[in-house]
Design a protein around this nucleic acid. Sequence first.
DNA 1: AGCCGTGGCTTGGTG
DNA 2: AGCCACGGCT
Length: 674
Amino acid sequence: MSAPLLNPPQRAAIHYLDGPLLVLAGAGSGKTRVITYKIAHLVREGGIPARHIAAITFTNKAAREMLERVGKLMTSAEIRGITVSTFHSLGMHILRQEAPHLGYKPQFSILDSYDAGKIIADILNTTSKDEIRKVQSQISLWKNDLKTPDDMLLAAQDQWESVCAQTYLAYQDTLTAYQAMDFDDLIRLPVQLFREHPEVLLKWQGKLRYLLIDEYQDTNTCQYQLVKLLTGVRGLFTAVGDDDQSIYAWRGANMENLRLLQQDFPALKVIKLEQNYRSTARILRAANSVISNNPKLFEKQLWSELGLGEPIHVVQCKDEEHEAETVVQRLLAHKFEFRTEFKDYAILYRGNYQARIFEQALRNQRIPYQMAGGQSFFDKPEIKDLLAYMRLIANPDDDPAFIRAITTPKRGVGAGTLEKLGAWSGQYGKSLFAAAHDAGLRVQIQAAQLAPLEQFCDFISQLQYRATREEAGKLALELLQAIGYEAWLYDGEDSPKIAETKWKNLLEMVAWLARKGSDDGKNLIELTQTIALITMLEGRDEGEVDAVRMSTLHASKGLEYPHVFLVGCEEGILPHSESVENGMVEEERRLMYVGITRAQRSLTLSYCVKRRRAGEWQFIEPSRFISEIDGDDLRHFGKPGAEPLVSKTEGKSRLANLTAMLAGKDKSGDPPQN
DNA sequence: AGCCGTGGCTTGGTG
DNA sequence: AGCCACGGCT
């Protein structure tokens, strides 16, 4: 990424303003650079003020990074009013203003997938997480494909699809009743809005005149329609993507969108970025060679000026334990030999479950490591408790929030009362909160139960009033104190230590609300409305810690590491057996391609000869993808007739000494994160 | 009968 | 690490 100047295709992509443009940006070819430079170019040379430019990404992280890099190129006056956001937050932004056109209130709630799962569990009347997950993802796929419940009730091919379609219908009705949307709705509903209300579309087309779309290959049908609607006949956009890195078809991403772009915009100009600034030629040769086995819409060959580099090491291991040990030993030996740091290494794997054994091996050698991802701050139960109150204050129709709030902590409103309330609200088509005020219901409830219910509703009403007038952080803290949450935490099942952590998290949340509230001039309600889309990941100092990175292949996309170990390169794992059965090997190959192209200087592929499965030792074939790499670029270890696992320059005993020495000397082996 | 610990198994995961 | 199924316990 340290190209001093722009190369010719990059420059062409930046300067082309006359019509629709697709930039096929190979791995490590400087695509973020192109997007950010293009934004600057649009403003300075293209005469398009920043307020008419929207750069759309998939993740908050990408949006943050892009804004940061744009901020380094331009003055704050130049970038004023620019939209750099995820698809979801753009959709939300539109819907907050236009919700009434769709029969929603502007203060609708946003449910995360966990909340949505609970609704689906209720409808299905099941507790099996697996079943819920399957139905939920089917509904999500349909939504992303712009299919309505009615469409699917008609089109259902079998019993299962029919159950899903019925669940979909009931689920959508429930969401409407709650004045709530799920993540998919945030993109689906703007499309519906724009189709039904051309005048509204016109307004937004006037506002967002030039679009830049990052990771275009990951768009689903719904997202593409949104782009297409917004860009209209003018077709002023730059889509940046790489068909070879499309690894999210299972989540609804539609590679067909690349072909559609050519079809829907005949004037589409296509520019390829093929110079890679990340990896050695050897690594790119391997990547090109593997991916050449996939049918291609656009031909693309990555090349680099960073020198040939070392052959790719292929390590055969006896079993998974041996693989973990071997990888860790080779990592240590390499670190010693080349005087690198732990953070220069990554271990990449197909499935999360593979991580465990490598964690163990790393811990045994006292090697610090860091796992990708992690739980979002806002997903912690104690935070969700507070959020339930905030959601209810922002949207009194949010029934799930009502239930969670009124029962956390328990305040004398029991299941019986809630049942009566639920029945009444259902009968009169009201939310729980609204129904609670009905005189007709109240006569059915005994005074002892009515008092706490009344008290709760008054409490919420009071907060609603104060939320628009008072400072968010202060109000949230008062709320927690009023409900006695801290005492409730210590009274509960948690150990005092856990209770303390949870309370500290809440105080951090309060501080966050206070800071964000005053920075952005937002009250508690406005903050609540954006929170569902924010991910505040733990391990804030990510990137600086000297620790080996561990990640799934999926989560590694977009990242790079000097030295990569790609483990479990076996038939059944990579490609995954499920994918082989479903004829999805091409996507697995792209996954392999993504893995290979993460490496800057060295790449090691490892596989096991046998694995424990169902209590039996099962023999495994190495991944077909290894044999798709030219043998001249490979160097085998651990195979009969090939080099031994421990290279000849270092006898086994010497490596053992070395390992022990490193383990003893290197006291940086702090307890690993998480 | 319900509650638990244990062991086997596991595609991937952003908003 | 999580989820489920199973078996042993109260």
